[in-house]
Amino acid sequence: MAKKSFRQALNEALHLEMARDPRVIMMGEDLTGGAGAKGVQDAWGGAFGVTKGLLDAFGPERIRDTPISEAAFVGAAAGAALTGMRPIAEIMFVDFAGVCLDQIMNQAAKFRFMFGGRAKTPLVIRATYGAGSRSGSQHTQALYPIFTHIPGLKVVIPSNPYDAKGLLLQAIRDDDPVIFLEHKMLYDTVGEVPDGSYTIPFGEARVVRDGKDVMIVAIGRMVGVAEEAARQLASEGISACIVDPRTTSPLDEDTLLEVAEKIGRVVIVDEANPRCSVATDISALLADKCFDALKAPIKLVTAPHAPVPYAPNLEDAYIPTPEAVSKVVKSIVKR
């Protein structure tokens, strides 16, 4: 099977679904490299190269470069979704959701409920997230806890190219607003991705690897960190199972509980800040529902409660590392 990058996998999903469904349109800043200006169109394929080639294939009516106003184009996309389109709005950095949170939180997320279930809002908001790119604290946050907290939104955080394609296709076909978060440091990661269409259902965790001594729960880029930790631990005779929830809303509670009950030791790795986070949420779930099966305290490995630093050495220290995960695992696995 062909190996493709995370970026290619997303690009393929967009091409396939726009070809299949004429209702799919895209809106965002610099999707085609500056509409209305002189010069080469689509030179970069968007700020991160994900939308490359879409302008040529589907034209400016369906691939819409917007002014720099998230409030305007996210609101427009939500409205278009209500009328039967399947818009994909791209927020270049999820941090910018700050200027259009009303459109997301008070409008799109509420339509289904406030209109008596008679309105569908098949809106996808794609955005990059995450630290590691030396982009400073306004372009690097992992804000999925905020969206996960809001009923009416679905929140998707792929960790690898295969999942990225299948989850994006599912997101576009879903009838509810979906926040689709792409870690910028994952775009160049490579994995096996089928050429054709396939969808991965939401609320379906992936068991990344089997193990019997500890369950490591990880999301997005942290899955790779957990895998590296698991390799280190395996060489020391500790067998780690890794569970990737893939979507934080809906959350696959059944798989988390099943594996936690079987293994009894849990470490949750999360790049987001630790207060009111997905890590604390899953920790509370497990403490509530399978306390008797636990053999050790649930441990969290997260970023500190601080903005992402700009200084490279501090940014590196901010992000959970495989070594930090291994150390915490060893603190609860009695040998």
């Binding site: 269409s197 396939y198 969808t199």
Partner: peptide
């Protein structure tokens, strides 16, 4: 997982 990946294909 391998079986699921096969079955998901269009």
């Amino acid at each position: 997982e391998g079986t699921l990946r096969f079955k998901r294909l269009e």
